[in-house]
Amino acid sequence: MSSIIQTDAAPTQIFPEDAEVLKGRSLWDDARNRLLNNKAAVTAMIVLGAIVLLVIFGPLLSPFSYDYPDWDNIYEPPSVGDAHYFGTDSIGRDLFVRTLYGGRVSLMVGVVATIVSLLIGVAYGATAGYLGGRVDNIMMRIVDVLYTVPFMFFVILLMVVFGRHLILIFVAIGAINWLDMARIVRGQTLSLKHREFIEAAEAGGVSTPNIIRRHIVPNLLGVVIVYITLTIPQVILIESFLSFLGLGVQEPLTSWGALVNEGAEDMETAPWSLIFPAVFLAATLFCFNFIGDGLRDALDPKDR
C-alpha cells in the first residue's frame, strides 16, 4: 500500500504546517471524512490497493519466474490449467508474473517521478507567478529554453556521463515533466495574487515566502491535483521510451510501458500480451484519477 499513501499524501505533505496553522486538526479530519464519503474515490482506493497488493505478492501465486524463457511455450494463450494465467510472450515467458513485476517498476517510477516534478513545478511556478515582473520573465524564459532543448540528447548524455543508474530515470523524467506543472501553477498564481485575501495578507505584513506557502499554494491544490493525475500516465510511458535509449528498466526486467509497447506489436497474433498489461495500466490510471478528484474536493479550501 505504500505507493498509495505516498501519492495521496503528496500534495499535503508539502505544506503540513500551513494546514495546521490555518485550520487546525479538525479540518483535516473533515477532509478525510469528505474523502471517505466520496464513493468513486473510495472504490478507486480499494482497487488501487488491490493492484498494489497483487503486484507485491502476486508473483508468489505463480510457479514461474519473470525471466525464464520456455521455447516450447511461445505465445501460449492464457490458461488456468498450465498456470500461465495471462499467457506467455514471444519467448515463452510467463506474462502474469511479468505484468506484476512490470507494475512494481511502473508504479514506483510513476509516483516518484511525479513527486519530483510536482515539487519542482509548484515551487518554481508559484514563485515566478507571485513575484512577477522581471523575475517572472526570466524564470519563464528558462522554462521556454528547457522546453526546447532536445530531450533525447539530454538522456543520452546523462547515460554517457553517469551510466545506467535507476535514479537517473527519475532525474530524466522529473527534469522534463515539471515544466508543464510550473507553467500551469504560475498561471493560476498570476490570477490569485490580486485577490482580496492575498492583498489583505500583504497589507498585514506577511512575508513573501509565507504568502506563497500559506495562501497561494493551498489555493492551487485543485489544479495541481488534476495535473498530477495527468502526469502519472505520461511518466509511465516516458519510462519505456527511456528504455529504448538504453536508460531505464532493462530486460529481463520490465515495466507496464515496455509490456504495452511489445504487446502493441503482437496485437493480432497474441492479443493477451497487450490486453493484460494495458488493463492493469488503465485501471491504475483510472484509480489515480478518481482518487485525485476525491482529494481535490476534500481539500478544497472554499468548502472548509
Partner: peptide
Amino acid sequence: MLGISIPNFVVAP
C-alpha cells in the same frame, strides 16, 4: 481518461 490510458502507438494501429 481512455485517451490518456491507451497510448497512441496502440490506438493508431
